[in-house]
Nucleic acid binder design. Sequence first.
DNA 1: GAACGAGATGTTATAATGTTACAAATCTCG
DNA 2: CGAGATTTGTAACATTATAACATCTCGTTC
Lengths: 163, 163
Amino acid sequence: MSANALPYRPHNHSACVHQALADARTVCASRQARLTPIRERVLELIWQSHKPLGAYDLLAVLAEDGHNAAPPTVYRALDFLQQNGLVHRIASLNAFTGCTHAGENHTCLFLICRSCRNVLELTAPSVTQALNKVSAAEAFTPEETTIEVAGLCPACKEGGDND
Amino acid sequence: MSANALPYRPHNHSACVHQALADARTVCASRQARLTPIRERVLELIWQSHKPLGAYDLLAVLAEDGHNAAPPTVYRALDFLQQNGLVHRIASLNAFTGCTHAGENHTCLFLICRSCRNVLELTAPSVTQALNKVSAAEAFTPEETTIEVAGLCPACKEGGDND
DNA sequence: GAACGAGATGTTATAATGTTACAAATCTCG
DNA sequence: CGAGATTTGTAACATTATAACATCTCGTTC
């Protein structure tokens, strides 16, 4: 990992992962969903990375773990985590990232730096409301919203990484 | 194609395709970009469908044409068409759709019906502005924006296609 | 404790989507 | 025409995702 690997805001990442896992346990307990070892491990790996990980990235790390997993194992864990609002799939990257609003029902958007690959998840009521109005004007009933903005994060902009 | 296949607004689709191709020729001419037969054919197929087509869907139709094309042929044509603003890729579907604002520099969004698969492309300044504000607040420089809303279109809602 | 059933995982194979690398053809412009 | 750039052909391969079915685990019931 290069210096670029820093998330937008420096923080104690280990604690951050730990908190995410604790939240996940709470959410799953309240929903009577079983956060099994594989599911928890996948969630942990995703949070440790702090950048979106592909399913096959996860498979590779699990292999290092000594866990000889096949694709369905990872995809099933990811499905579970998505359904319980613990991870998001970034469609434009075919990759997954930890949800920073676990347990909350939310429409979120992603700012994706094309240089350092960091992703910032935000909830933006102004955007959501504008989208709802547009949908309503077309008599369209929205169910799942994908908002992904690719560009340059502040750090990479300053660093001159704007190739 | 079922009755569901109707686009939101009935229209003379053949003329619609014809117009799109004419626009494409104009745009390419003004940009000194070469709308070669393959590229034009791919664009035509995309417009004829009126629903997003995958790259391999296009390959299959080209094969029926007697054109024995391989994947790179189609992907290259699609790259060209995207770069010249003639088609859009829908990330959540891995598919491509004709751009209804060819030649205009625009940020667009898509309303995607999960039942009939029709896609409506819109430009929504309110959404774009809200997104720009959010990006600015994070000192993020946006370059490419993906906004895809999956849900139910009015026709499918009425038809009770809300399974 | 034994039998059952639901959910979770393992396993194999395959489908669907997208790219690399290099050769051949075609176009453009002097 | 002929050199250089662009476009297309072709084969192989990489990446992402799913289908289908077998096995295991664990809580419940008898």
